[in-house]
Nucleic acid binder design. Sequence first.
DNA 1: CTTCCTATTGCAAAATATTGCATTTGACCC
DNA 2: GGGTCAAATGCAATATTTTGCAATAGGAAG
Lengths: 154, 154
Amino acid sequence: MRYPELALNILKEKGLRITKPRCLVIELLDEAEQPLSAYEIKDTLSRRGEQVDTVSIYRILDCLEENHLIHRVISSGKVRKCALDQEEACALEQHDHCHHFLVCEQCGQIEEVHCPGTEALVGALQNSTRFLIKSHRMEFSGLCPSCQPACIGI
Amino acid sequence: MRYPELALNILKEKGLRITKPRCLVIELLDEAEQPLSAYEIKDTLSRRGEQVDTVSIYRILDCLEENHLIHRVISSGKVRKCALDQEEACALEQHDHCHHFLVCEQCGQIEEVHCPGTEALVGALQNSTRFLIKSHRMEFSGLCPSCQPACIGI
DNA sequence: CTTCCTATTGCAAAATATTGCATTTGACCC
DNA sequence: GGGTCAAATGCAATATTTTGCAATAGGAAG
């Protein structure tokens, strides 16, 4: 199953509605190689003859982010679809796992990684600080393998 | 030494200038109990009879963030001074250590924590992904000890 | 297929954030 | 103390994001 179908399933599962604007945005995010900004999404859809109001784009992105279907890059605010694999799609409730992200400063490419040990870290933090930790966000930025030669200057 | 003095030292050390607007913003951030937005900073200064242009506030905050003197909360964009202890002030070049943050969703309070094992994690990630990791950002959000009783509903 | 309910959308206005360029001012040197 | 030069600031215009509210349209139930 492709991203759009999986993403829509997850929304449906949560009792959210499948609307035209949502489908358009999800479809576009699936095709995109690079992270997109709200306006880039709006403009691309416009060029295709699909008018979706800016406010709606923002609200759709909020919704997708809340449901862990996209990742918002901290530095740029642009968004990229998350990887949804079959297992996760089947076990929807387990969907909001720990996703962490590597962002290339040069080309914008995003790679998702699972960091083993995160649960343990969160548990230790809760014990030592008495905070009740409900969510976390971890993003690493640097240079991806293909951008390194150019940037290091060789 | 208090935060303003330490912060200004760090800026000076980096060859940056000590200007009136920067001093005002740093002073205000030092007093603030809660994270502040750019406009809150501008308005507070205005009420005190100090006019600093909005653009300058943004640029000053960028500068402070680049030098690890403030932390920008991801969800709200508001900023809070970082803790600068004596040792760090003395060893300026070591200043940009791994700072991680716990943010209370309820009262906005921020606690800084050092996460042991972060360097090792970054090293392991670099090996497995071939990314060259230059910086990272880690933020945990939830409820601080004093907000937990009210929010859990007891 | 139609009705109903409410989640979602679109619109207008306001709030916040960014950009380019001219002007000011910190700090180094004499 | 002046002179110099680049870093910082302020201004004006623009771009992006958020808010409140009325209109629309999913989709559940009959």
